[in-house]
Design a protein around this nucleic acid. Structure first.
Lengths: 235, 235
DNA sequence: TCTTTTGTTAACGTTAGGTTAAACATAATT
DNA sequence: AATTATGTTTAACCTAACGTTAACAAAAGA
């Protein structure tokens, strides 16, 4: 069995620092793709699958946060680490809000970075890997392609799904016929669990139910106080 | 609604700092158990299940690393965050080696700590794939699915159960054909044992008897002054 | 008999969820 | 830069679900 190197997307506008960091990571057996700005970073992200993104916060045109948000719309799971100029508390908090896994204050120790990367990769490894790789689902007479964010009925014209619609339906599908806890969706998709995000989720459930109406054998049931259940009656 | 707070084990020998931190976390809806040293920390860890451990590194007798190692031997999954005195690189690296998820340099910003905790909890939010064994019961001609909270008769249409109905029937099923003491249900389900909760429980027993009526071989008997007994006559 | 415990039904108050529409935010287009 | 399209959150209103309590009846034990 051939151990595949982990792939890292590094987005850093400082050419010197970026190159040094890239080389250092490659020396430590990571495959690194280096983008010089936010735009390029997003292009490269769309073209490939990465195990980790390291984003500089301060970049011209498109800063690290904006990029992170775009990345999160495409992929809720990939770990993101920010490089912040100094101990800017605001930046750190903002980073976590857009779904960062960690941050590092520049200048930082390269060994510490390596350890952080290792720790993050390990966490991911213990997470349900099988789940994150699954992007296509058969839901009754529907086909959900979660990567392209569309839903087909009877193989006809696909309906486009918004990022949130897509993620929610995907989570439900992953738990097909079983309980999908409210809390899970809220922490995974909304990254926060409060009254308003909860109501927001209910709104999305309503939207999904509309989409799924054409097939009477598919329904989203509520389990009061617990969550939802995507039931597929196959007859 | 019984949204369970996340439980944190905080091991910190400085009594002032420890108390302040504990209060701050509790203000933010975490259940916190505070241990004053490594030994006590390990004792408390063994006695309960925690969602997160926050360990001070510098402690007399047993330092945070040693404690972390012991914790890891018992549990490979629980997230651990270290509090290090300052940016001691050695400490940070050592921390990651014993399986830390993150670290914080003292003094640290409390909001940043909160965000880190949130981020860590969210990662862990990935499905607690509870074994279905514990949640499925055969009760005469009924099937109880305690996770999805429904009761099926002869494999037909499932009847939805409310949380309390479900818990109560599950407790009875766990004690099948045996005494299920009143007090047990009251403390486990109602978390209080007084006249009113007791009457409330009787109301639920009545509801359950109605649900179970279709199978004459299943009944809930009362043992005066003691509790109830779910009897299943298999002929 | 008389007291305590249990059985049962109905009424009530509270919270969670379903749904729609408006407000707000952001990205895309002109 | 201004406008339009798209996505998301917030607000509002309504219904359903749930749990508690009260009230009265029946049974058990003393």
């Amino acid at each position: 069995m051939e151990e595949q190197n982990k792939k890292i997307l590094l987005v850093e506008d400082d050419p010197n620092f970026g190159t040094v960091l890239k080389d250092y990571l490659m020396m430590n057996d990571y495959d690194v793709v280096h983008a010089k700005n936010g735009m390029e970073g997003f292009e490269k992200f769309k073209k490939d699958d990465y195990d980790l993104c390291i984003l500089d916060v301060m970049m011209p045109y498109k800063d690290g946060f904006t990029l992170a948000k775009e990345i999160r719309e495409k992929n809720t799971d990939v770990p993101i680490v920010f490089l912040t100029a100094k101990a800017m508390k605001e930046d750190v908090l903002k980073g976590y809000k857009v779904g960062a896994d960690d941050y590092l204050n520049k200048p930082f120790d390269s060994e510490v970075l390596l350890m952080k990367i290792k720790a993050i990769m390990q966490r991911k490894a213990t997470d349900t890997v099988a789940d994150s790789k699954q992007f296509e689902f058969k839901i009754g007479r529907f086909d959900l392609n979660s990567k392209l964010r569309f839903l087909k009925f009877d193989g006809g014209e696909p309906t486009k799904l918004s990022p949130k619609e897509n993620e929610l339906l995907r989570l439900l599908a992953l738990h097909e016929n079983d309980l999908m806890p409210r809390e899970l969706a809220l922490t995974k998709i909304w990254r926060d669990d409060n009254y308003f995000t909860s109501r927001s989720m209910d709104v999305y459930i309503a939207k999904l139910r509309k989409y799924l109406k054409p097939d009477p054998n598919v329904e989203i049931l509520n389990i009061h106080g617990e969550g939802f259940r995507l039931v597929i009656n196959n007859q």
